[in-house]
């Protein structure tokens, strides 16, 4: 599982530029599904045919990033944020562009209070000698993501972009195990979640599933003085009750809980006060689609070093397997 996650987090994929991730996933699962296609928004939709209900499982491929807005006369890059990037977390970090170019994020040093360090007072330094030199390397509108290799130790994974490549890994692994079921399963790898749950909306509209689950990360409350509720790392996948974008359909929630209990899979209940998932746009698509979610407890979300527990990931796969068999 660590290998699968590694391949996925290493792919470059800020919102709107998810093709590399889609390519990696296609290679992983294309021999295990009946059909695989992409749509106008870039969503990757893999189908395992069946005669029963249409079940949509969604994990988003995009990660947060930075976008170049201006190249100044000395070759420094000004940027805007793609998705929920914290300026303070970005400071001093390495970022990498699709062509492999690395940059450092820094701030205008006239800033005295670091609370004023907003993206428009910050820049990316790629070591360019001049504006012209910089323009040979990168263009306005190019996106960069946090750099860094994933680490596996003590049963946890530390990496950028676990939000939501770990969800992609869960779905890819599930597709590879080919669970026996009469239902028609849509493994949907969505785009542009981080900028407003956009890809999932059009995917849901074209599939019109009977029900949908979003597989995403959720915050934990188990770190020193955390305010983020009861979910803890390593205590099982979290079955979504609500977040800021959706209230899970009670029957889906109930069914997930029953699946976990009957199969002795540890689980937690997720009540997330901030943040949303693809289920938020799926459940109000067309005439309404009953939706829920299975979330991987994750520390330090939207940082360069997010952390998940591999047991939670494995148990999420088991829980979904049990769910779609019923």
């Amino acid at each position: 599982m660590f290998k699968t996650i590694s391949k996925l987090v290493n792919a470059f994929g800020p919102s709107g530029c998810e093709k590399q991730v889609a390519g990696v996933i296609t290679n992983m699962i294309e021999d295990r599904v009946d059909e695989i296609r992409s749509d106008a928004m870039g969503n990757l939709i893999a189908v395992k045919r069946g005669s029963g209900k249409k079940i949509m499982l969604a994990a988003h491929m995009d990660e947060i990033g930075l976008i170049v807005t201006t190249i100044d006369e000395k070759g420094f890059l000004r940027f805007g944020t793609v998705g929920g990037v914290s300026p303070l977390i970005s400071l001093g970090q390495r970022v990498v562009f699709e062509n492999g170019l690395t940059g450092v994020v820094w701030y205008e040093e006239s800033i005295e209070n670091m609370k004023d360090a907003k993206p428009d007072k910050m820049y990316i330094d790629i070591g360019a000698r001049s504006e012209e030199h910089a323009k040979e390397l990168v263009g306005i509108g190019d996106m960069a993501v946090f750099a860094g290799q994933p680490v596996g130790q003590n049963g946890v994974v530390i990496s950028k972009a676990l939000d939501d490549r770990v969800g992609c890994a869960v779905l890819a692994e599930l597709a590879r195990r080919c669970p026996e079921t009469d239902h028609e399963i849509y493994y949907v790898f969505t785009t542009q979640e981080e900028v407003g749950l956009r890809g999932a909306r059009t995917a849901a509209y074209s599939i019109m599933p009977h029900l949908a689950l979003a597989i995403d990360v959720t915050r934990t409350g188990d770190t020193p003085k955390s305010k983020h509720g009861a979910v803890a790392l390593g205590k099982g996948p979290a079955i979504k009750v609500k977040d800021n974008s959706v209230i899970a359909h009670p029957k889906i929630r109930e069914k997930l809980v029953n699946c976990a209990r009957e199969n002795s899979i540890p689980y937690q209940l997720e009540v997330l006060e901030k943040g949303g998932t693809d289920a938020g746009s799926i459940h109000i698509t067309a005439g309404g689609i009953p939706s829920g979610g299975v979330s991987i407890p994750t520390r330090f979300i939207h940082s360069t070093a997010e952390m998940v527990d591999l047991k939670d990931v494995e148990n999420a796969v088991k829980l979904l397997e049990a769910f779609i068999k019923r």
Partner: peptide, 8 residues
């Protein structure tokens, strides 16, 4: 994307 656009 390898073949994935074929349904588009």
């Amino acid at each position: 994307v390898k073949d994935s656009a074929k349904g588009t």
